[in-house]
């Protein structure tokens, strides 16, 4: 379990990897991945009970990434945790790689389920959480959803299922970044009032600044003490966070930076890294 200062450092490293991986691949989804870098750092280096050297350890916490397109962030966090060599990140989206454009369960140990078609991950997480209850197992099931993904009706079936079976071992982290491919989520397919909707489905709802590592640590500590209901942490994030020209721009949902843009982004992130080191 790493301290806040370390976690900021991890999140910065993940962001640099995201830029390098997507630029190197010539395709990918930078905005969502950058926005969730802090969440991935906190999950992999503070929250999850896992063993990178033994990815199929029975008692591990499960992390389902339902919006598979932001997998660059997950791959980076996994590499830095020790699931596979960091240099393998260079193979992202290339032929014969284990790091598929959307995560492949069969290819990469530690990916709990393949994902890519939106609206399926929460059902899988519900099945895993229910199985844990059936087997009296104590691990938790975390599931990352994007806000745009809530357009899918199937997600609401799963939200109801989690309520039916009182799955308090299930924690959803919603990437509330307010954009999807076509623009503002509220214009494309209105989602608000999100909190009220989840409360109506009898979920425990928590809000957090998803780009504040310290607050994220605080909210996951609180989650550990909640009982009786499925839990959703609405992580309010800035898409493209950390790279000035990408922040809050829907156009960066699924577009790679050009080489010069990537270099500029990495320079910005290096400056931020020095500040993190100075503060540490």
């Amino acid at each position: 379990m790493e301290e806040v200062g370390h976690l900021k450092y991890r999140a910065n490293a993940i962001r640099q990897d995201i830029i390098k991986m997507i630029s190197n691949a010539g395709s990918g989804h930078p905005a969502g991945a950058l926005g969730m870098a802090d969440v991935f750092a906190v999950l992999y280096f503070h929250v999850l009970n896992h063993d990178p050297k033994n990815p199929s350890w029975e008692e591990r916490d499960r992390l389902i990434l339902s919006n598979g397109h932001i997998c660059a962030a997950r791959y980076s966090a996994m590499a830095h945790s020790g699931y596979f060599p960091i240099k393998e990140l260079k193979t992202f989206r290339k032929i014969d790689s284990r790091l598929q454009g959307h995560p492949s369960y069969e290819d990469l140990p530690g990916v709990e389920s393949s994902s890519g078609s939106l609206g399926q991950g929460l059902s899988i997480a519900v099945g895993m959480a229910l199985t844990a209850k059936l087997d009296n197992a104590n691990h938790k099931v975390y599931c990352i959803l994007s806000d745009g993904e809530l357009d899918e009706g199937s997600v609401w079936e799963s939200i109801n299922a989690a309520n039916k079976w009182n799955l308090d071992n299930l924690i959803v982290i919603l990437d509330r970044n307010n954009i999807q491919i076509s623009g503002d989520t509220e214009k494309v397919w209105p989602l608000n009032p999100l909190r009220k909707k989840f409360e109506a489905f009898n979920w425990e709802v928590l809000d957090v600044d998803g780009n504040d590592v310290m607050k994220l640590v605080g909210v996951f500590d609180r989650v550990n003490h909640l009982k009786g209901k499925p839990i959703i942490v609405i992580a309010n994030t800035v898409p493209g966070k950390g790279v000035s020209f990408m922040e809050n721009k829907a156009e960066w949902h699924g577009k790679p930076p050009a080489k010069d843009q990537a270099l500029y982004a990495l320079k910005e992130l290096s400056v931020k890294l020095r500040k993190i080191e100075d503060d540490f």
Partner: peptide, 18 residues
């Protein structure tokens, strides 16, 4: 699982993976 087949299939996948 109610008349909610999409969730049922996903749930089954999650249970199988467990």
């Amino acid at each position: 699982c109610g008349v909610a087949e999409q969730n049922m299939v996903g749930m089954a996948a999650g249970m199988a993976l467990s």
